[in-house]
């Protein structure tokens, strides 16, 4: 670290001049990032927080109306539908989705034939547009030309499920658009697996542990940081899930989510109400982080 403070040679004017010049350059270098932070993060968040307590159409001055937006939100049935869906999706994300990612990580870690190829291919769904992916799945699940129903008809010729339109199925159809794509979890867990000291494993082998016991009692607990981060990432993605819903069901068939309510309110010019929704999203996000952090004891050192 180049120490600028304290200025040791305070009487040496040339040195002092150079240091002040450096200090000026430092802040000039920070300036663009700070400007982006202010205009696209800090000011928006402060605006959202304040105007969530107002009635605002974006043109006239915001009118302070206290908690009315929140009360209105809490009195709509779509809000509870969204929360209920979010809870369901979060539970699925934290268990099945992350679980699948961990499973793939444990398998690939053994370096079976083709593991590098598998890792590379597993990433493909994550590098293409969520919007395109949602569209692909929309066709995948179509009753007439889709793959899924054609496949199911092999077993029961009378199947005619409109996956993205009917209530119990739409939730699961949306779930399937992301359920197996857990490559981030896989990469995180593989990173942690590789960091486990050889001595820990050797000790377990001497104690007579078999492969499964080793995975369950040694590897899995030592990967809890990666799994925790994976759970946080996947739940955060559920809170922000918009494209997968907007492009398939658009909220029909009991598949509402908070961002869909938010965008609709903006389109209707209810900015205050939209921002109340945004505040709820922020709070849910921070709560998730806090709960998962505590649950996985992520603040404690592992080794």
């Amino acid at each position: 670290m180049v120490k600028l403070f304290p200025l040791k040679n305070i009487f040496d004017n040339s040195m002092k001049g150079a240091k002040i010049k450096t200090l000026i350059w430092i802040y000039i270098f920070l300036l663009p990032s700070v400007a982006i932070f202010l205009s696209f993060y800090l000011v928006p968040i402060v605006t959202v927080a304040f105007t969530s307590f107002t009635k605002w159409d974006g043109f006239n001055r915001p009118q302070f109306i206290g908690l009315s937006n929140f009360i209105k939100l809490f009195n709509t049935s779509v809000f509870y539908e969204s929360l209920f869906n979010l809870l369901g999706w979060s539970l699925i994300a934290a268990t099945l989705h992350v679980g699948f990612g961990v499973l793939v990580a444990f398998v690939l870690y053994k370096k079976p034939f083709g593991w590098k190829f598998t890792r590379a291919v597993f990433m493909v769904p994550n590098v293409i547009s969520v919007a395109a992916w949602a569209m692909i799945y929309k066709y995948f699940f179509r009753n007439d030309i889709g793959i899924l129903n054609t496949f199911l008809r092999l077993f029961n010729p009378n199947i005619n499920i409109n996956w993205f339109f009917e209530a119990p199925y739409a939730f699961w159809a949306i779930t399937l658009t992301w359920l197996f794509y857990a490559v981030v979890v896989t990469l995180l867990v593989m990173g942690d697996l590789m960091a486990i000291p050889e001595s820990v494993r050797e000790g377990a082998i001497i104690d007579g542990a078999n492969a499964l016991q080793m995975a369950w009692y040694i590897d899995l607990p030592l990967c809890r940081n990666a799994i925790g981060v994976g759970v946080i990432c996947s739940i955060t993605a559920r809170i922000a899930m918009y494209e997968a819903i907007y492009l398939t069901t658009n909220g029909a068939g009991n598949t509402m989510n908070l961002p869909v309510i938010l965008v609709r309110s903006i389109m209707d010019g209810n900015y205050g109400f939209a921002n109340a929704c945004a505040v709820i999203m922020l709070i849910v996000g921070v709560l998730t982080l806090w709960v998962v952090d505590k649950a996985f004891k992520m603040d404690e050192k592992i080794y």
């Binding site: 920070l30 990032s33 700070v34 932070f37 205009s39 696209f40 993060y41 800090l42 000011v43 928006p44 968040i45 605006t47 959202v48 105007t51 974006g58 955060t236 809170i239 922000a240 918009y242 908070l258 961002p259 938010l262 965008v263 903006i266 900015y271 939209a274 921002n275 945004a278 505040v279 999203m281 922020l282 996000g285 921070v286 982080l289």
Partner: peptide, 24 residues
Amino acid sequence: LFFTLFTMTLLVPVHSRTQPIFSL
């Protein structure tokens, strides 16, 4: 402070900033 603020933005859901960015 700057570094903490910059990395904390990771916690902000994309959609929650919609209205201010739209208006901007």
